[in-house]
Amino acid sequence: MEIIREHNTAVPLGEKLSKIYPSPRRFPVFSWAVASIFLMMMGYCSSLYLTVMLVNRMGYTEAQATPWLP
């Protein structure tokens, strides 16, 4: 039997996540893949942000800031 909620009651965050993301205990490989892709993209974005920071705030030229970044 499904519980019907009124429109003005708050749904907990854990319940919302359980509907869109699979359980990490049942699917640990998927959870590790999502976490590793997230961390890899954060590393990539931080290197791009470092380039922008060096050019805009530190006074480097683009040629000086980019040769040693991946």
Rank of each mutant, 00 (worst) to 15 (best):
M1I: 14
E2W: 13
E2Y: 14
E2D: 08
I4K: 15
I4V: 15
I4G: 11
I4N: 13
I4P: 09
R5A: 13
R5Q: 14
E6Q: 15
H7W: 15
N8V: 14
N8E: 13
N8W: 15
A10N: 14
A10C: 09
A10S: 14
V11F: 12
P12Y: 13
P12E: 14
P12T: 12
L13P: 04
E15W: 06
E15T: 08
K16V: 06
L17A: 07
S18P: 02
S18Y: 06
K19S: 06
K19A: 10
I20G: 00
I20T: 01
I20E: 00
Y21A: 04
Y21G: 00
Y21L: 07
Y21I: 07
P22V: 02
P22K: 02
P22C: 05
S23G: 03
S23F: 06
P24D: 04
P24A: 01
P24H: 02
P24M: 00
P24C: 05
R25M: 02
R25Q: 08
R26L: 06
P28Y: 07
V29I: 09
V29Y: 08
V29K: 07
F30M: 03
S31L: 12
W32D: 04
A33N: 09
A35G: 00
A35N: 02
A35E: 03
A35Q: 01
S36C: 04
I37Q: 04
I37M: 10
L39P: 00
M40S: 12
M40D: 03
M40W: 13
M42C: 12
G43K: 07
G43C: 07
Y44I: 02
Y44D: 01
C45V: 08
S46W: 05
S47K: 10
L48C: 10
L48W: 11
L48S: 03
Y49A: 09
T51H: 15
V52W: 09
V52C: 08
V52Y: 11
V52S: 06
V52K: 08
M53D: 12
L54E: 07
L54G: 05
L54I: 03
L54H: 06
V55P: 11
V55I: 13
N56M: 08
N56I: 11
N56W: 12
N56R: 13
R57W: 09
R57I: 03
R57T: 10
R57P: 00
R57G: 05
M58N: 02
G59W: 03
G59I: 10
Y60N: 04
Y60Q: 04
Y60I: 03
E62K: 08
E62V: 12
E62W: 15
A63S: 10
Q64N: 05
A65D: 00
T66K: 09
P67M: 10
P67H: 09
P67K: 08
W68I: 11
W68C: 05
W68R: 11
L69I: 11
L69D: 01
L69K: 03
P70A: 02
P70N: 01
P70F: 02
